[in-house]
Design a protein around this nucleic acid. Sequence first.
RNA 1: CGGGGCGUAGCGCAGUCUGGUAGCGCGCACGGUUCGGGACCGUGAGGUCGGAGGUUCAAAUCCUCUCGCCCCGACCA
Length: 506
Amino acid sequence: MPKKQPNAISPTRAENYPEWYQQVVRASDLAETSPVRGCMVIKPWGYALWENIQRVLDERFKETGHRNAYFPLFIPKSFLEKEAEHVEGFAKECAVVTHHRLEAGPDGGLVPAGELDEPLIVRPTSETIIGAMFSKWVESYRDLPLLINQWANVVRWEMRTRMFLRTTEFLWQEGHTVHASEDEAQAETRQMLEVYRDFARDYMAMPVIPGEKSAAERFPGAVATFSIEAMMQDRKALQAGTSHFLGQNFAKASEIKFLTPEGTLQHAWTTSWGVSTRLLGGLLMTHSDDDGLVLPPRLAPAHIVIMPMTGRAEDPEAVLSYCRRLRDDLRNQQFDGRRVEVELDERDIRGGEKAWQWIKKGIPMRLEVGPRDMADDSVFLGRRDRSPKDKVSVKRSDFVDTVAATLSDIQAALLARAEAHLEKHTRPIDSEVDFRAFFTPDDPEHPEIHGGFALSHWSGDPAVEARIKQELGVTIRCLPLDEHAPGQCPFTGDRSPQRVVWAKAY
RNA sequence: CGGGGCGUAGCGCAGUCUGGUAGCGCGCACGGUUCGGGACCGUGAGGUCGGAGGUUCAAAUCCUCUCGCCCCGACCA
């Protein structure tokens, strides 16, 4: 390993984006691969990040009237078969439990015994099992709306997996609601999409485009699927959250019926919506740089690390106690409604090595505190949204007084940078020639980062969508909610109701 | 399932073609010198070479079978 690298992560984003991603996951200590195919281990730093996401979203769900519950991991196969499109959509990626016991086999190993009468599916999503329960819980219009959320793990047996972005098992929340009217269910679907949009922007500092999915990208069994789409630094789209209007499809499949005030028996209207640990992958690819992870302060597991510089100090203990008092004073400050979280890193390793570890982990602020600073009653501050070399001396009292403001400033800077990136690489395109050029790299052998979001008209013809996907690997990410101007489809010349977002996607 | 590649120390790899005592870098432990930007020197611990069978005086290396993983494709709300 060279003595000095220009940056902490190799390769850089420009050199090899997918490999850079893997290296950041590793260097930041968020997660690592496990002995189980396609499944990852989320390490404490990554899990703390997920816990912060959970905490904030859970508050939003409760504010909007939802309550948490928990449903079984296993779903009887027959349940999944109830909704035709749903089966079609998920069957190929289901893990199936067929036995309930192991016995010693002829070769000394264990072999499955005790075959189940009916196989159990490990939930890929819970519409059917939750629907079965909801059918018992809903009898009258007085039972509605029913607003439930669960935090859980799900399993989807994907062919190819990528840390956080597509793993066999992942953590998520799934909201499931039942309503007495179509309008109310539609409103719920849109409300939760808004919750996700606001969360992504205000907490993750990740700007997103909310919109409806085309029929080809719709959730199996849904009447309408909405999503928030974010642009990663390689300009590919990441679907960061979905909200589905299920119409009466699942209510009919699960017999969720209620008596109206007029005494008639009606099928209810349902919704479901979710975000997953995929958000961590989105967070990483939105902000991180060639030195590793960059965390927005509102979600960072810790805001500040204090690194005592005791190496050449005449009185190391004095430096340490100065640092401990600083830590305590900082912890008495509030940021974003919670205590400022401080790590005091007293490990006996070299300062440079220590600093780089924290840079790679993405902590928003680093404080180096040694005898010089102590004598001057100041701290030496580095911010993760700036260059590792860009460090300044700040009076201790000023730093403590303004720590919350500084964290807000970092949060805002990250959002501004991400918004600028999204804006820069989103453009209206009105001809097929321009469209193809936009999505074609200069060097096809070693494609450079190119393209982005193309805002083009589309008549609604699924054949066009399929052809473009086939030819360019580009798909319609969503029909943005704020696009209304009609125009002409650049592929067919047909009339188009609105511009849609085209992009290569994760 | 089709095409390609790889399994050797915790991680990353060389050694395999041409059989002959198991190697390197990082990491780890200890000692010393260091320490405000990724330290250096020395010493040391750590390996059934994915597994089974075969050829041979001798197999990480050759042969047969097998297991697993990765990449490309198909697939993917």
